[in-house]
Amino acid sequence: MNLFRLAGDMTHLVSVVVLLLKIHTIKSCAGVSLKTQELYALVFAARYLDLFVHFVSLYNTVMKLVFLASSFTIVWYMRRHKIVRRTYDKEHDTFRHHFIVLPCLVLGLLLNEKFTFREVMWAFSIYLEAVAILPQLVLLQRTRNIDNLTAQYVFFLGAYRVLYIFNWIYRYFTEPHFVHWISWIAGIVQTLLYGDFFYYYILSWKNNVKLELPA
């Protein structure tokens, strides 16, 4: 475990905690894309299939449980909670996310480290995570006044992947044979997708103005 990876995991944790607290405390999910949340729940479900069969460390197991629980709780809140569900911006969250799932599944079948069920699911989850933020970014472009917590959620979610890229660079130079093309390429694509969001987020933060994403 290196500092970049730990910082990345903590940043990822902060992003889901920020979102969960926002939804739980103000009972609102305005500006949050349910599709992105569903995609993330699917990412964790597909990636952590080895949760009970392959023990890496206590930290690893605990974090997997936290990410699984938080992502499914958020989806539950947005679908089932009588107050929160009414604040869901249904008419703007229209990204057809099943168009994302199928290509990622096909890619997982074609490009994986080993053609076993778990490995195909793992590769699928890596590709899916790379594009899972798209519905949320599209929704932000359509949302007039983006509330800070949602913007912070997206920012931390992007920041964690940037830190992971540093982690991969570090591990590449410190561990022999540490080569994971699938994670690396998908991780870089994922980070690039946040590119313009980061630009406008930092710009709004610097000029101390409300975050606006050009449509």
């Binding site: 460390s57 778990r118 490995e119």
Partner: peptide, 10 residues
């Protein structure tokens, strides 16, 4: 190559 690939990252 071991049966399962070692994924030690989240």
């Amino acid at each position: 190559k071991s049966e399962t690939v070692e994924h030690d990252e989240l």
